[in-house]
């Protein structure tokens, strides 16, 4: 019964759409920064070590993407279905997008969380939640936004599956290195 209820809220297709967005954002960030750091790794690692390191990093990207989509699905389960209105796909892509924008902002803003006090955590957390809630209602009420988000997810599908394939290869390499 619970599974039926979950299926009613989150269709497999919608789940895939959100996962595609998560994979895309996390992998694009990872690959860009791996490529940026590669020249400095060439100074200190041999090719086998670089190969291994990149495998761990891409494995981490797959885990990160999976955890993000699961987190989004978890939130979707908590939200009453009358509010979600079968828009899991668009709402999920929206949440993945604003999470990514927030994370990129924090990274490029040079924030040092290790020096944060409680107030900074509360302020940043509140800002994120308010933005997410605002965007949630925007998606719920403005069909144009929903269409854009769904279309975005569709356009990312091909590339995201390439990333998924590379990430799975990386997982296999990590397993082989540790057997």
């Amino acid at each position: 019964m619970a599974i039926n209820s979950l299926n009613q809220r989150i269709h497999a297709q919608a789940f895939r759409s959100v996962f595609v967005a998560c994979l895309f954002y996390v992998n694009v960030w990872a690959i860009i920064h791996i490529l940026r750091q590669l020249p400095s790794w060439l100074l200190r690692m041999d090719s086998w070590e670089i190969f291994g390191t990149v495998s761990y990093l891409l494995t981490a990207a797959l885990i990160e993407s999976s955890l993000l989509v699961l987190l989004i699905a978890f939130f979707a389960i908590l939200i009453p279905s009358s509010i979600l209105k079968g828009k899991f796909s668009a709402q999920g892509v929206m949440f993945a997008t604003i999470s990514t924008i927030g994370a990129v902002g924090l990274h490029y803003g040079g924030v040092n969380i290790l020096a944060w006090g409680l107030n900074q955590f509360l302020f940043t957390g509140s800002l994120f939640i308010l933005t997410a809630v605002g965007m949630f209602f925007l998606v719920a009420r403005v069909q144009r936004v929903e269409i854009i988000l769904n279309s975005l997810s569709q356009h990312l599908t091909g590339l995201s599956y390439v990333y998924l394939f590379i990430d799975i290869l990386a997982v296999l390499i990590v397993i082989i290195r540790n057997v």
Binding site: A30, H33, A103, V104, H107, L114
Partner: peptide, 16 residues
Amino acid sequence: EMPTSLFYRLILNSVV
């Protein structure tokens, strides 16, 4: 350097 993970460092540093 910039971290290669989008979220891991943010979460890890919060836990730390």
